[in-house]
């Protein structure tokens, strides 16, 4: 019999479900999991049939509970994602990510001449002017822009 490797349920950690299909690797990137490998297992499942949206991606991170700031980052890439915090094999908390009204200090502005891209002591700030696909407007220079993973 052929041996199969199956992605099983995790005992402790975070399951990010309903990620927009194709975005899983970007989610790993903004969580820093692609550059800074975790000490435990991270599973990525892509292009899974979904009842709500025809396909979705899922990320399972063992032994790490995501913080609120990290949830907000995911909302920028995948507005329908759900976050399940798993403790002792049970879903202890379930959150829907909500696109924020304002994005503060999460992304850099695409306008190279924006004051936030100089050496001034100022955080970036964007108003969310459209949620899907997400469009941000820089509070400082006024430039409207898409969310770009390289700038997160």
């Amino acid at each position: 019999m052929r041996k199969e490797l199956k992605i099983s349920a995790i005992r402790n950690g975070t399951v990010i479900d309903h990620i927009t299909s194709g975005m899983a690797l970007k989610v790993l990137h903004i969580l820093g999991l692609d550059e800074d490998p975790p000490t435990s297992t991270v599973s990525v499942i892509m292009h899974v049939p979904s009842r709500v949206h025809s396909f979705k991606d899922i990320v399972k991170i063992e032994d790490r509970e995501l913080k609120k700031q990290e949830l907000n980052r995911i909302a920028l890439l995948s507005p329908h994602a759900t976050i399940n915090i798993i403790r002792d094999g049970e879903v202890a908390e379930k959150h829907h990510v909500r696109p924020p009204r304002e994005v503060v200090d999460l992304a850099s502005c695409e306008n190279p001449n924006c004051i936030t891209n100089s050496r001034e002591p100022v955080s970036t700030r964007f108003k969310v002017i459209r949620k899907e696909p997400m469009v941000l407007k820089c509070v400082y220079c006024g430039r409207e822009q898409d969310v770009c993973v390289e700038r997160l």
Partner: peptide, 13 residues
């Protein structure tokens, strides 16, 4: 008057 966009908004803050 400044050469960077958003300079006045930041200065006002």
């Amino acid at each position: 008057r400044h050469d960077r966009e958003g300079a006045a908004r930041m200065a006002a803050e």
